[in-house]
């Protein structure tokens, strides 16, 4: 099954990249606030049960994909 893991910096963790992009958008006259930049990880995970596949993706997040000091993730089975 196709799985999408979305990794974001936790609230309160400084995101200088997001800040720079926000300033860039302001430069073009866009009204935006709280721009945060994250990472999308798409993958094929064997299995047919969405709950089971999601559990596998969660284990991957805990082992490698996410650093809980600074990041949080959401998992979507597509």
């Amino acid at each position: 099954m196709k799985v999408r893991v979305s990794v974001q910096l936790k609230p309160g963790i400084l995101d200088p990249q997001g800040k720079a992009v926000e300033q860039g958008l302001h430069g073009f006259g866009f009204e935006v606030d709280h721009v945060r930049i994250g990472r999308l990880i798409d993958m094929d995970v064997p299995g047919t049960d969405p709950a089971e596949v999601k559990a596998k993706a969660l284990a991957m997040c805990e082992k490698l994909l996410v650093n809980p000091v600074m990041e949080k993730a959401s998992i979507e089975v597509l």
């Binding site: 200088p16 650093n67 600074m70």
Partner: peptide
């Protein structure tokens, strides 16, 4: 060492980028 959990914390991008 931080990623291996031998030390606490994480090293983020420099504030200046």
């Amino acid at each position: 060492l931080c990623e291996a959990h031998l030390l606490p914390g994480a090293l983020l991008r420099n504030e200046s980028l």
